[in-house]
Amino acid sequence: MSKNWPLWEIFVRSKNGLEHRHFGSLHASDAEMALENARDVYTRRSEGVSIWVVESTNITASNPEHNGELFEPAQDKVYRHPTFYDLPDEVKHM
């Protein structure tokens, strides 16, 4: 059997000033074709002004099973938030 086209993840900037956002994925033989296909699949109604394509195998993702050790340490660091600090009401502009 012949080799299948690899999978690419598609990121689109909807307008200048905004970040690229993940839109979905598609199959293409190379990066150039992935860009062209992404134009047709994800931006048929002017949804974007810029496209990034990344071959899916190049993405390393965190494992949700490790969410505890990865993200929970932030939860008990309330002093990182402005509301942690007690200030009298008379203090303005702060």
């Binding site: 299948n4 999978l7 979905g24 994925s25 598609l26 199959h27 047709d40 699949v41 048929r44």
Partner: peptide, 25 residues
């Protein structure tokens, strides 16, 4: 344009499906 949209719908859905570890083929 409508028929092209339907192709797009198929592709969004296939790619959503592939996130569960099944291949397009």
């Amino acid at each position: 344009a409508k028929v092209q949209d339907e192709a797009g719908h198929g592709l969004y859905l296939y790619s959503a499906c592939e996130t569960l570890g099944v291949s397009r083929d």
